[in-house]
Design a binder for these strands. Structure first.
Lengths: 186, 186
DNA sequence: TTATTTTTGTGATAAACATCACACTAAATC
DNA sequence: GATTTAGTGTGATGTTTATCACAAAAATAA
């Protein structure tokens, strides 16, 4: 089964014909490590599904410090949702941390597909709800947990991440300096 | 025009008949200051729309410290979305900060209404998308801004809030101690 | 390979923020 | 209106975390 279909069918069931229609709206794209798919200022009109690889979406502040909003790995979706939904210039950038294979759908095609296939409207609605819950829990974690606790939770939830991405990026995700993160590990 | 209709029509337009159907799925409820609508451990099956008043949704940690996830005022929606969507026991509580008038819809009725009226499915989908963007920006603010900067941004965005809720609750929302918040103000 | 860049750990110091303690004021309750 | 409770400001002190500096190891590129 196509990995995208396997992913979608975790939430809704599709017929062969329906999945063919869904897939026809996506385009494949390959990117190498250090290449970007979104740059600050872009009007983002694509949402990416990660077939293989690893990416980061991040914000660079006035002092040049990087703050990571999201990592994306296999079976995750990534884009700047603010720009994608509101059609405003992106405040963030998205880069590949590894060579990556992506499937993307444009905003226009997503609108067409959801209009044509109600199941996919429900799929993205569910994704959006779950995404919101995950963000809420991250806020809670930033409010109530110390850097050490946030580190432990992340390590337990996504151990693969620590194998794949440099520690300084983990630090930028947790909201601590890389030096502090290094000291937390011991 | 009914204030709920005015609110919904910021995103989608309804006929008189359609709004009557929508409204028929809601029930009014009145709560006094300090009363709760959600308590930790509840299975939350209602989503509340605030006609009048002010509420907080918050998490209490092991040391008894309160962390505020959301304030709700007129025209805002409030519930524990994690419990409401996933049907799991709530980790948070929601209390009234002022006497409040609410309209609520049950999970079951929301499902019925969205199945019957596609416009309302789109309404809630949009709400969910915008909610997610707002949470993302709050995460960004927690990562990149100092307590003072978070304070300034909140004061600029929601000046009314500082009139209506005690400073210690603002502190619990910003993720600083009330003493630090007090010192930031000068 | 060799050279260069990136990643990582660790000490010394400084800044931000939390905690504890207390006084005072405002507001809710009887 | 008196009494209790909740909210607020401020000093003293301690903890957590950031920043700067440097060295070594690992990964990447020439």
């Amino acid at each position: 089964m196509h990995p995208l279909r396997r992913h979608i069918e975790e939430l809704i069931i599709l017929t062969d014909e329906e999945f063919d229609v869904v897939l026809s709206y996506f385009e494949p794209i390959q990117k190498r490590k250090h290449q970007y798919i979104v740059q600050e200022g872009d009007l983002v009109d694509k949402e990416y599904w990660i077939l293989d690889g690893c990416l980061k979406s991040y914000f660079v502040d006035e002092e040049g410090k990087e703050h990571i909003l999201q990592f994306g790995m296999e079976n995750w979706w990534i884009t700047d949702y603010e720009s994608f939904i509101k059609h405003t210039p992106s405040k963030i950038s998205i880069d590949c941390i590894e060579d990556s294979e992506l499937l993307y759908i444009t905003f226009e095609n997503r609108e067409k597909l959801t209009a044509q296939m109600h199941k996919m409207e429900r799929f993205w609605a569910k994704k959006s709800k779950f995404g919101r819950i995950a963000l809420q829990n991250r806020i809670l974690s930033l409010l109530k947990n110390s850097a050490k606790e946030r580190y432990d939770v992340l390590l337990e939830q996504y151990p693969q991440l620590f194998q794949r991405v440099p520690k300084k990026l983990i630090a930028a995700y947790l909201g601590v300096s890389r030096e502090t993160l290094s000291r937390l590990q011991s």
